[in-house]
Deep mutational scan, measured.
Amino acid sequence: GQVNVNNTTYTFPTPKLAKEFAQKAAKKYNLTVHVSGNTVTVK
């Protein structure tokens, strides 16, 4: 799974890890998680 945070893309071996990372990043920066297919964007 891929996660985009502040124009930086992070790649994870599983969608589960990507989702967990996205949720932590969203909480940390007070942003929202947007899911589109296999790509998760935090903005």
Rank of each mutant, 00 (worst) to 15 (best):
G1W: 07
G1T: 13
G1H: 13
G1N: 12
G1K: 06
Q2F: 12
V3N: 11
V3W: 08
N4L: 11
N4M: 11
N4R: 05
N4P: 12
V5E: 12
V5D: 11
N6S: 13
N7F: 15
N7H: 15
N7M: 15
T8W: 15
T8R: 14
T8M: 11
T8H: 13
T9P: 02
T9G: 03
T9N: 05
Y10A: 01
Y10K: 02
Y10G: 00
T11Q: 06
T11V: 14
T11S: 07
F12H: 01
F12G: 00
F12S: 01
F12R: 00
P13D: 10
T14H: 04
T14D: 06
T14P: 01
T14V: 02
P15W: 07
P15H: 15
K16M: 10
K16G: 09
K16D: 13
L17P: 01
L17W: 05
L17E: 12
L17H: 08
L17C: 10
A18E: 01
K19A: 10
E20W: 15
F21M: 02
A22E: 02
K24M: 15
K24Q: 11
K24T: 08
K24D: 05
K24G: 04
A25E: 04
A25D: 02
A25S: 04
A25Y: 15
A25W: 15
A26S: 10
K27T: 09
K27G: 06
K27W: 06
K27N: 09
K28A: 06
K28I: 11
K28V: 09
Y29W: 13
Y29L: 06
Y29F: 08
Y29I: 04
Y29E: 05
N30I: 03
L31F: 06
L31Y: 07
L31W: 14
T32V: 13
T32F: 06
V33M: 05
V33Q: 00
V33G: 01
V33F: 08
H34E: 13
H34V: 15
H34K: 07
H34Q: 09
H34R: 06
H34N: 07
H34F: 14
V35C: 03
V35S: 02
V35G: 00
V35D: 01
S36F: 10
S36P: 00
G37P: 00
N38D: 03
N38T: 08
N38G: 03
V40M: 02
T41Y: 09
T41W: 07
V42H: 01
V42Q: 01
K43P: 06
K43I: 15
